[in-house]
Simulated assay, not measured.
Amino acid sequence: MRITIEKDLCIGAGQCALTAPRVFTQDDDGFSALLPGQEDGAGDPLLREAARACPVSAIEVTES
């Protein structure tokens, strides 16, 4: 899988990090970021739910 975070859309709500904390975190400015080594989501079952939880749809998950 491929995870794309649209930084221009992200408002820093943190829903991704709350939903899938093994994949997402928030950077120093409070915006969504992937944890190191999680560029493909590492099979986390909550990955797609985290993308759906984003209030501005800033996260896209696609099959590679």
Rank of each mutant, 00 (worst) to 15 (best):
C54F: 08
A51Y: 11
Q38I: 05
T4M: 04
I5N: 08
I3S: 10
L18R: 14
D44H: 09
Q15G: 08
L18G: 05
R48K: 14
C54R: 07
Q38E: 14
D29N: 07
G43P: 03
E6K: 03
E49V: 11
L18S: 07
E63L: 15
L34V: 12
G41H: 04
F31M: 01
C10S: 02
C54G: 09
L46C: 09
V61R: 14
L34Y: 12
K7L: 09
R22A: 11
P55N: 05
G37L: 04
A50V: 11
E60K: 15
A42I: 10
A42S: 11
A51V: 13
A20I: 06
S64G: 14
P55H: 05
L34K: 10
G37F: 13
Q26M: 04
G30Q: 01
G12M: 08
D8G: 03
V56S: 06
A17T: 00
D8A: 11
T19R: 05
R52V: 05
D40V: 08
L35M: 09
G30E: 02
G43D: 03
E6I: 06
A33Y: 05
F31S: 03
A51E: 14
Q38G: 08
D8V: 03
C54Q: 13
D28Y: 03
R52F: 02
F24I: 00
C54M: 13
A51R: 12
G43E: 00
G37W: 10
M1H: 10
G37K: 04
V61M: 14
Q26C: 07
E39P: 02
P36W: 00
L47H: 07
